Computed example of a mutant assay.
Amino acid sequence: MASGFGLNGGPSRCYNFWQEVLGCYVVNAGEGETGKKKCMPALEDYYECLHHKKEALRTMKMQAAYRKAEAAHPRENAPKAEQIRSLGLLGKDEESSAVLAKA
């Protein structure tokens, strides 16, 4: 387990969640297995603070939904393949020579 100290010497970022878990265990210690079940939400919050698994899953789902929406609605002004290949530079010798003449 971690030392409980943060990077700057203060309490770690999950210290408050750990205090909630300990407080729950102290209050519900005499109830046996049902006491542990009462503390599961606090324990899940502590684990989420440590590992960010729920947040990562939510982020992946949002990214997948965004990609799906982007694929369903292509851009209106999307460049054509010829424009992408040439980058708009081929066939513009006059403009290139004018820019080079100024330099």
Score class of each variant (00 low, 15 high):
A103T: 12
L43K: 09
K102W: 05
S12V: 01
D93G: 08
P79K: 15
L50A: 04
T59Y: 00
L57N: 05
Q63T: 12
R67T: 11
L22C: 04
L50M: 11
E31R: 08
Y15V: 04
E82L: 14
E95D: 14
E48D: 13
S97T: 14
R85P: 00
I84F: 08
H52Q: 14
A103L: 15
G6R: 05
Q19M: 12
G23Q: 01
E20D: 12
E94V: 08
G4N: 05
K68T: 15
G88R: 06
I84E: 11
S3H: 06
K37Q: 14
G35N: 05
D93C: 03
K37M: 09
F17T: 01
M62L: 11
L87S: 09
G30V: 04
F5H: 09
L90K: 11
K36Y: 04
S97W: 07
Y66F: 08
K54C: 01
E48M: 04
N16D: 12
K68I: 08
K37A: 13
E33G: 06
M60V: 01
L89D: 02
G6S: 09
Y25L: 13
K36T: 09
G6N: 08
A42E: 02
G88K: 04
I84W: 04
S12I: 00
S86V: 00
A29P: 01
K37I: 07
R85Q: 08
P41D: 01
G30C: 03
L22V: 15
V27C: 01
H51D: 13
M1P: 01
M1D: 04
Q63M: 14
A65P: 01
G30E: 06
Y25P: 00
L100E: 15
L7P: 07
V26N: 02
Y15T: 07
K80Q: 13
G4K: 05
H52L: 06
V27F: 04
R85M: 09
M40G: 05
L43I: 03
L50G: 05
S86R: 06
E70N: 10
L100C: 13
A29V: 07
